[in-house]
Design a protein around this nucleic acid. Structure first.
Lengths: 207, 207, 207, 207
DNA sequence: ACGTAAGCGAGACGGTACGTCGCGTCTTACC
DNA sequence: GGTAAGACGCGACGTACCGTCTCGCTTACGT
């Protein structure tokens, strides 16, 4: 391995801090959390916190990035054998499995910070995997720059849409199975993509 | 009115503080602003600030709420004579007219806070005016509760979508005229509404 | 006046802090004192401390300098009408009057810091008032530079001597009246001065 | 001896730490030194430091005590064959030989700590060897307690005097040979002793 | 000559204090 | 009555060292 496998104590400290942050975000809201509160809950000294993280945002970022990597892995991951629809099901099933985690961070107590981050991540993800018509697409009259701009709009909107779907679903207490919310989200996304593709090539079917 | 028209000096202080907050948000980002900075820029004493506002959020809230009232007035306002499409044009034209203001607050430096607030406002607005199939709409097998839930999803998604459209448009430097972005947003919204209505309608595709 | 007379609250805070520092130096020793302890004892916030002083040393310095100014005033002060011997009596009577204050700061708990400062102050004072033979003094073979150097040695030694006399007297619980210790100190000092003057002009009587 | 001759590595560590402490005291002042700095300079781990010393004061104490033992040996050491004057010459010659060492520790950067310790050591030494009039000395009217007290004053003053002489001489860059400063110090000391003995002696001048 | 226990480096840990910053409250004097 | 000026209590920040504690590694020593 590249790094020489972290010491046991170090890993323990990290773990305790992560758990404490999630718990406290649920109880008191991320925005008003204090490093002191986190370390007290984690039964770790404040020094230990600052030895590893610059501030609570760095800790939160690591927690979130790790989760996002796994989450994005479900939808973009591996082989293309699976039909696209199934990927979204896997995506929401992952959210379902860790629903407490995502619910806390994306919910009201997570306070914008996590939601904004997720929106950005999903927008990136969509940008990368957006089924564009490709180079052969008839660009309309506005030229490729305008087309790229429109893709930007679409990607941004889609990223926000997925984030909002997840958040809504979790905040409602997951009123339907993952498969269903996945289907609905995919439908909405499909409609948006179809419209956006229409801008660039009017007669083009939505993938 | 009930309150006896505010003192001149009070109004002057309020105005100076509002301007200072917008300027500083642009320069340094809303999240890291301090009351001291704002009052210094406004050439007003810190005491004067606290006499009128609880904290910077209250000031920001008043600024924003006032703008939102006017903004929502463009789309939902008054008589139904205008065709819906024109309303969105008026909406974006208002954003266009105050583009610096909205650009600053919704942009990166506005730091989630204003964007989240706008998302909530627009979601409320959408909820109120969502063109549902009406009481005669066949509710499918899931019953009215599920239908309401789905409307919630749609409204949430639509609110986020509009917010994201505005933000994207402003951040790109308004790459197209208000009429065009209004049309595109309306198209996207229409597609989403159509899909959502489909869920409740007769030919509801299971998923 | 040059400065517009300090606010009442400010003076109160200063006073409380000074008293607290002296008390705590007596109880726990100056070296190990903490700003937090001082402010807690003074019933003043830590912020208030740092608003006025850089650290505990600055506070201690102001306390000490003020006392030293008054103390040195007794010996060097005003008109030359009094015989020199009486000046030393006044000097020790001042120490006697504030014996608790000086006892605490110069004692074991004062921990070198105050004693070193007093040694320096008294050395300065002696340097200024040292009854040198003046320009007419026969400089021996070593020249004026060497003479100045010897005066430096004498002044340094005398400063330390007085400091040590005071400290010793206070630590012993003032075993004799001020007049007596003053007389003894003056005798010792006179002997030292006589010897030092002898270096520069052998046959010269000790003033 | 009882302890089985220290391990080679232990001795090496001790030596490196001692040298580092003296060097750093010269460069940065003893008061502000940290254990980390000392061990870094000594190219030794912090753990190694704490294995041997409680803190920097213990290290400094050992360094100083060792030097003091040797220094005091020059003046009080061995046979009484030598005339007293020669002893002081030997004393200052020892200081001269290790002038860098003493200069650093007693100088401004040594910061009171070493000077205070030396003052105490020399006071002890003087107390032990003070040439009192002996048991046959007439104690005056105040009785033996008062006489002891006066001896205490004399010893304290003499200890400070010698310390100050050495410090002054070193700080001036040893402006005269050891023999000369030794002579001067001895003269000053002699004068002080004479005066003090006078207090206890028959013709005791009231003050 | 070699096995072993002591000393060693690296560095995380729980603490304590530091000096700074910003908060929201307050007092005072001015207009 | 509103305002400027600015001290105050409070509480969190991020930093610096403290003295303690594993944990492997190396190395002088004793048999």
């Amino acid at each position: 391995m590249s790094q020489p496998v972290e010491n046991l104590r170090v890993r323990r400290t990290r773990r305790l801090l992560r758990d404490a942050l999630v718990d406290l975000t649920e109880e008191r809201g991320f925005a008003t959390l204090t490093v002191g509160e986190i370390t007290e809950r984690a039964m770790v000294s404040r020094s230990a916190f600052y030895r590893t993280y610059r501030d609570k945002f760095e800790l939160a970022g690591q927690i979130f990035d790790e989760a996002m990597a796994e989450l994005l892995g479900t939808v973009a991951g591996g082989e293309d054998g699976r039909p696209p629809a199934e990927r979204w099901v896997a995506f929401f099933e992952h959210v379902d499995a860790y629903h407490r985690f995502y619910g806390v961070l994306l919910g009201r107590r997570g306070g914008d910070w996590f939601a904004a981050r997720m929106r950005a991540s999903l927008t990136d993800m969509v940008t990368e995997h957006l089924p564009t018509p490709g180079p052969g697409r008839p660009g309309g009259t506005a030229g490729p720059a305008a087309a790229a701009a429109r893709d930007g709009l679409a990607a941004t909107v889609l990223g926000a849409m997925f984030t909002e779907s997840i958040t809504w679903w979790l905040e409602q207490g997951r009123p339907c199975p993952p498969r269903e919310i996945a289907g609905q989200s995919a439908q909405l996304a499909g409609a948006v993509i179809a419209v956006a593709n229409g801008w660039a090539g009017p007669a083009r079917p939505g993938r």
